[in-house]
Simulated scan of single mutants.
Amino acid sequence: MQVGGKSQTTWQPLGWTGASGGGRVGERRWRLVDVAASAGISTQQVRNYLADGLLPPAGRTPSGYRMFTERHVRALAVARRMAEGHGWARTREVLAAVHRGELPAALAALDAGHAELDRERAEIARVLGAFETVLDSPAAAVPRRDARIGVVAAQVGVRTSQLRLWEQRGLLRPHRQRGTGYRVYDVAEWRAAQVVALLRRGGYPFDIITAVLDELRSTGRPDRVRAELARREQDLHARSLRRLRGSAALSDYLAETVPAGTH
């Protein structure tokens, strides 16, 4: 095939004869209803999977009925296993590329899915590290009444302009005093200003600081923050294993259908 003046080779599944063919010679034919029954889904769902590229092209009988083979049944099982770990959107992207004969695109999409988990795992670790930094620091005295921006800035050790900048970024949420319009920080926002100042001095980026503040504001208690982060980490481990099993199913499927030397 010529693409942009250059020759480009695409692979085709072993023994597959395309949409007008019926699969491998002598291979068992499956009815649409039987393919659906193999996965416990409706025949319309099978049609949808076929249209989305989750299944390889299906041949037609002389009378116009679709012809399915064991490869369709195998692809259906792989799609459902992949969806458990990668989600349907990613699964459609990967398998559609596989069935178009675009293996590099399929692998790139698969790699992107695993990379997402790696980034999420790193973020949890960074948030937990930032949170531990907050807990390990000596607690500064916080008054039991509201304070204006100048008092808070002096206590936290930054300029008032810095507090305003953090407010613009959504990190701080002081309210306005009636009549004067002055910024007023309650106890919670005073502590939030301390957290931001501490983490900024520690070199943490704003996205991590935002995550720490969100956790503290949503739970209100440090032990709950730890528990929530631990729960997310365990959930991530479980999703990672499901994604790995989905990728393994795809690997087996490719080994059965992609010619040797192309994978």
Rank of each mutant, 00 (worst) to 15 (best):
S7E: 15
Q8M: 15
T9K: 11
T10V: 13
S20I: 11
R24P: 06
R24F: 00
R28Y: 09
V33C: 04
A36P: 04
G40N: 10
G40V: 04
I41L: 02
G53S: 05
L54H: 05
A58V: 03
A58I: 03
P62Q: 12
G64V: 07
A75L: 07
R81D: 15
G85D: 03
T91A: 02
L103F: 11
P104L: 10
L107I: 14
D111C: 00
G113F: 01
H114E: 11
H114A: 15
L117T: 03
E120R: 14
E120D: 12
F131A: 08
V134I: 11
D136M: 10
A140R: 15
A147L: 15
A147Y: 09
Q155H: 12
Q162G: 07
L163T: 02
L165P: 00
Q168C: 00
G170T: 04
L172Y: 10
Q177H: 12
G179M: 02
G181M: 03
Y185V: 04
D186Q: 09
A188F: 00
W190M: 13
A193Q: 04
A193E: 04
A193G: 06
V195P: 02
I208M: 05
I209Y: 10
A211F: 10
V212E: 08
L213S: 11
D223S: 13
R224V: 08
A230I: 02
Q234W: 07
D235S: 13
R239E: 13
L241D: 11
G246N: 02
G246D: 02
S247Q: 03
L250Y: 07
V258P: 09
P259R: 09
A260N: 05
